[in-house]
Amino acid sequence: MSAPADDEAAARRWTIIGGRVALGVGMIVLWEHSAELFGINPFWLSRPSLVLETAIEFHAQGDLWRHINATVLETTLGLLSGCVIGIALGIALGSVRILRDVFEPFLLVANAFPKIAMAPLFLIWFGIGLALKVAVAFSLVFIVMALSTYSGFRMVRPELVNNARLMGASGTQIFTKIVLPSIMPWLFAGFQVSITFALIGAVLGEFIAAQAGLGFMIDDGMASFESSIVFLGLVLLLIIVWLINMTMEWLARRLGMEQSSATAAYNT
């Protein structure tokens, strides 16, 4: 209320914003001049200017978008297939009590297993093409979607369902009016995790075997000791993740799903 308190709050806010900007700019400047300031050979860290130069070079050769498109395509296909199968499985487990009781431990074991280690097996199964990356992304996504869908079912309040049934609601009505609204936040939270997981899956799949993609770029940069290429790949990956997060936050606000409590422990 009082003026001094307002001043203090404003000062505090400006310290925080100023600190954030200074830290961000400072880190980029330090990175750019790491060679002169700390004697770190740009061979290890590259420089922002070198990364930008590399980006322009890649773009001139028409490779920049080729890599981005490859990763985005793999991510999308893995995400979609994983969502469809995962949600279907989640609905089956969530709505049929016996299925849930029987299959829950299998799902928990599958969640705890580092599925990324399956990638070399997928290499034998699917070859070195698109299917390999989609399979890796799928294996990460479908468990998350199955678990989050059926966790959502557990949040459905039985008394609501009973009341509706008592008042003569049909099965469809109960599903659309009660079950769906209760599991939506969980589906949404699971989907949010799944996008990043699909991206990780695509990139790691590209580490195993690929001719294009951001993971290929990063791995190739490592193998040829070109840190600028590695960092370019990572920066592009970061930009994609950032765009995804912004979109999802916007979507969450539009759909009225503030950061839901629907978080759980998922493993890659």
């Binding site: 290890w44 990324i116 490592m222």
Partner: peptide, 26 residues
Amino acid sequence: REILMPYLMAIYGIPRPALAPIFVLW
């Protein structure tokens, strides 16, 4: 904390297993 928080969240949000090659390089 409030100054560092967005950076921590940004690092947290990186698909970090993808950083493996950088660690090999270093």
